Amino acid sequence: MGPDSCSSALVCLSGGVDSTAALLQCSRLFSSVRAVYVQTGHRTPPEQAYESCRQLGIEFSVADARVLFNTQIKQFTLDAYRSGITPNPCALCNARVKLAVPFSMLGHGECLVTGHYAGNSVSTLERGMDSTKDQSYFLSLVPGEILDRCFFPLAKSHKGDVRAEVLESGLPFLERESQDLCFQRAGAGVPGDVVDTDGNTVGRHNGLDSYTPGQRKGFGAHNGRKYVVRLDILRNRLIIGEEEYLYSEYCILNSINWLNKPVEEKFTCMVQIRYRKTAVPADVFLNGDGTQVVVKFHRSQKAVAPGQVGVMFLSDSVIGGGIIDRYEGDTYA
């Protein structure tokens, strides 16, 4: 959606430079604009958000999503860490809270606007033009019915230009960018053994919830460079080893959010397994109902972490995203 297909806009406003730029652009593109701050924790809307709306003559409101965030994101994330997997709360939050709540507020003919660096059209999600800021990965779990009502005005913008535009407008914005976990992982984990790939005990860990595959620190000094290879939840053991043990030929994607589901049971696409990792070619095998797929990478990938988001791309379009799990089945041809 966009100004060609809707007359009004609801802008998700955090007070940061990107959402402020989206607000500014919408004030020029739409006949009617309102803004909402989705509150997920103790932080209240920053004064910059109020002031930007005041200067532009835009209605500003706060949506209290704290209970939903605590149950759908915070508790889920803490439980996941305790289960020895590495979740991606930001991607989950976009799908379940940050876009879902304002989506429920939309009126007839109103589109939902955010400051994400991504593009979309009907039933598609595409990479943003600024490859250093592209956020399609973090939006891959957002249901298609929500994306179909979204407009991303920064889709073809570069970060430097966005900042310059807001500075020139005189609108205030927060200088900091939110990149860290927005809640504390309270409580200590259960200590256990650190073992090597041969099963020898070589040390102690302070709780598996502090580790993720590929990690190189936090488990003591050992001969040579060692990495976290796997978390053994059943026996509360941290398995470490050389880099060669980090590589996986396969993984599973669960709970897939299909945006453009292929009709073939096997297809080839690009798969991205972490935000800062480059998408790589892989063969994908669908199960019966398509809620789960097996991914066979053309080249084994390092530190494939269960719980992280795996995103499937055809060219620059997202066809689906899911949650990574370890594959322990038969070899696929």
Rank of each mutant, 00 (worst) to 15 (best):
F30Q: 07
D316F: 10
M312D: 02
K74Q: 04
G320V: 04
T291G: 12
Y250D: 03
N236W: 01
P191H: 00
E243L: 05
V228A: 01
I324M: 01
A282L: 10
L125D: 01
Q135V: 04
D79N: 07
V284K: 06
V97D: 02
L112W: 08
L23Q: 07
G2M: 06
C251G: 04
E168A: 14
S61A: 13
G160L: 06
S7L: 13
P87M: 00
L246S: 01
G214E: 01
D130S: 04
I233V: 11
E110L: 08
Y332G: 13
D79G: 05
K261R: 10
R127F: 09
S136A: 11
E51L: 09
Y211H: 00
G321T: 03
T77Q: 00
A303R: 01
A100P: 10
E175F: 12
T268G: 15
T212V: 14
Y37L: 10
Y332M: 15
L13H: 09
L231Y: 03
T86K: 07
A155F: 11
G41Q: 06
A35Y: 07
N70K: 11
A95K: 04
K159L: 04
T331C: 15
L141T: 00
G107E: 03
V304M: 03
Q72F: 11
S157V: 11
Y327G: 04
M1L: 14
V62D: 05
L24I: 09
A35F: 08
V11Y: 08
P46N: 07
V304Q: 03
G214H: 02
A221W: 15
F183Q: 02
L238D: 00
G115P: 05
V36H: 08
H116K: 04
P3C: 09
S315H: 14
T268F: 15
D161A: 12
N254K: 13
H222T: 04
E249L: 11
G119A: 12
V263A: 13
Q301T: 09
T20N: 06
D283P: 14
R326A: 15
T20V: 09
T114Y: 07
S104A: 13
S210F: 14
V36G: 07
V17A: 06
M312N: 02
N254W: 12
D209I: 15
A186D: 12
L174G: 08
V229I: 09
L13V: 11
W258S: 00
P45E: 05
E47C: 12
L106P: 04
S8V: 09
G288M: 13
L231K: 01
T77H: 00
G84S: 00
G15I: 06
F103K: 10
Q48A: 12
V166G: 02
D325I: 10
V318I: 07
L112F: 08
Q301G: 09
R274C: 12
C269L: 11
L139Q: 01
D316N: 14
D232R: 03
L92I: 13
F285G: 07
Y245W: 12
G109P: 02
S83M: 06
F297K: 07
V101N: 05
L92S: 12
K302R: 11
Q39A: 07
S7I: 14
S31I: 14
N120E: 10
C251H: 03
D79V: 04
R274T: 12
V293K: 05
R54K: 11
V229K: 01
D134I: 04
